[in-house]
Each structure stands twice: as structure tokens, then as C-alpha cells.
């Protein structure tokens, strides 16, 4: 097997465990996960409820810290970053899509997407161009000024996708992005993500329950009881 360049690795997990402590009770959520995700992958994380999908995505995204082991993103270990560095790293390198309630309810679709670019201090003209472009790319042209409450669930998720992508991150992490959508809408959203993945070469890692969604993934990582029990690439 050919040794790949380390800078090709977007995600590297080394012996990651996570134990939640609830008073006296210890809940092991991850029991030693080693994982490498390379640039441009479109990978699904599947497994029954409680298998540790959300936990794993949170650790990868630096939203939580592992009990043991290391998480490296683009070669950089997360445990050596300060709170502010980690915030900036997420802002510049990771896009997040959650299952629901991704958006700030008081901001319009346009403003929700613009927010991250404001954090990055992108100048006005370029900001405007990029926000309108990505909203058009996710099929929301003409709905820029609607608030989340005035959009359907599928449209809201598209805004979330647009927000995750507008910074052109190295990695997009999505935790059950289609769980709250009907299957047709969910599949359409996934097809859109897939085409953005091919178009821009962005790396996607998303969790799901849905067999239809799993089928669309180029790589399927199966979790059970906090362990990777299967990892297959296809197509």
C-alpha cells in the first residue's frame, strides 16, 4: 500500500475514547477510535442510536475534548489550541451542519450566511458576492431575505449548508442533516452536498440513520458501541 502524504489527511483520530461522567455513573461513548479521512472524501458515519456518532463528530469538530487519544485536523492537534484558537480554527477550516435549529432565528438567510464571513472580516463587496453565489448554488435565490421561520425545513438545511460552505472550509461535519426532512427532500439535499463535494473538492463527513443516504456515500464508516466495526469505500 502506498503511504499517503500527511497533508492529505484532513482528519486523524488516534486511540480516541470518550467517557461521559454523570455523577457516579460513567458512560463510555467511544472506546478507542482510530480514523483517517482524506481530502475530498464524502463519508457517512452510520450506526444505531447511542453508538457514538454525535460524540465522534463533536470531538472532530473541537466542540468537546476526548478523554484519551488525539484528534488532528489538517495535521494540527486540537488539544494544543486555546479556546480562541480553536474558535478561529473552526471558523476558518470547518463547516458545521446540525440536525435542526442551525440558524439564528432573528437573522435572515442572507445574514445567517454572512455572519461567518463577518467573523472572518471579509470585505463588504466580496462578502456580498460570496453570500449571493452560495445561496444561489443551494437553490435559494430570491429567498435571501426570509427569516428561518419563513423557510421550510429543507430550505433551512440548505441555508445551513450554504453557511457551512461559504467560508470554503477544509471539512464539513454534518450530524444527521437529513433526519428532520422527508426522504425526497433529504435525498435532494444529499445530492446537492455531493455535487458541491465534487465541484469544490470539499471533504464531507456526515452521520445518518437512513439507508438511502448511506447508499450515496463514497465511504461508509459503521459505529457500534463506540467502536468502528466496519469501514468500506466504494465507487
Amino acid at each position: 500500500m502506498v503511504q499517503s502524504h500527511p497533508n492529505d489527511e484532513v482528519i486523524r483520530l488516534e486511540g480516541v475514547t470518550k467517557v461521559y461522567r454523570m455523577g457516579e455513573v460513567e458512560v463510555p461513548a467511544l472506546r478507542g477510535v482510530d480514523l483517517v479521512v482524506r481530502r475530498g472524501e464524502f463519508a457517512a458515519l452510520a450506526g444505531p442510536s447511542g453508538s457514538g456518532k454525535t460524540t465522534l463528530l463533536n470531538l472532530i469538530g473541537g466542540l468537546d475534548v476526548p478523554t484519551e487519544g488525539r484528534v488532528l485536523l489538517a495535521g494540527r492537534p486540537l488539544d494544543q489550541m486555546s479556546g480562541r484558537e480553536l474558535s478561529d480554527f473552526r471558523r476558518d477550516h470547518i463547516g458545521f451542519i446540525f440536525q435542526a435549529y442551525n440558524l439564528i432565528p432573528v437573522l435572515s438567510a442572507y445574514e445567517n450566511v454572512e455572519y461567518v464571513l463577518l467573523l472572518q472580516r471579509v470585505p463588504e463587496v466580496e462578502r456580498r458576492k460570496r453570500v449571493l453565489e452560495i445561496l444561489e448554488a443551494v437553490g435559494l435565490k430570491g429567498m435571501e431575505h426570509r427569516r428561518p421561520a419563513q423557510l421550510s425545513g429543507g430550505q433551512q438545511q440548505r441555508v445551513a449548508v450554504a453557511r457551512a460552505m461559504v467560508t470554503r472550509p477544509d471539512l464539513i461535519l454534518a450530524d444527521e442533516p437529513t433526519a428532520n426532512l422527508d426522504s425526497a427532500t433529504g435525498e435532494a439535499l444529499l445530492d446537492m452536498m455531493r455535487s458541491l463535494n465534487q465541484q469544490y473538492g470539499m471533504t464531507f463527513l456526515f452521520s445518518t440513520h437512513d439507508p438511502m443516504i448511506m447508499e450515496r456515500a463514497r465511504r461508509l464508516i459503521l459505529l457500534r458501541d463506540g467502536r468502528v466495526v466496519q469501514d468500506e469505500r466504494r465507487g
Partner: peptide, 15 residues
Amino acid sequence: FEFGVLRAIGTRPLQ
């Protein structure tokens, strides 16, 4: 949840 999302997408603690 909203604040969690804001933190997740890169808002600094002081922000």
C-alpha cells in the same frame, strides 16, 4: 442551542 451553534461555527468566547 443557538449559542452552541454560534460557538461551533467559530464565534470566539469574547465575541
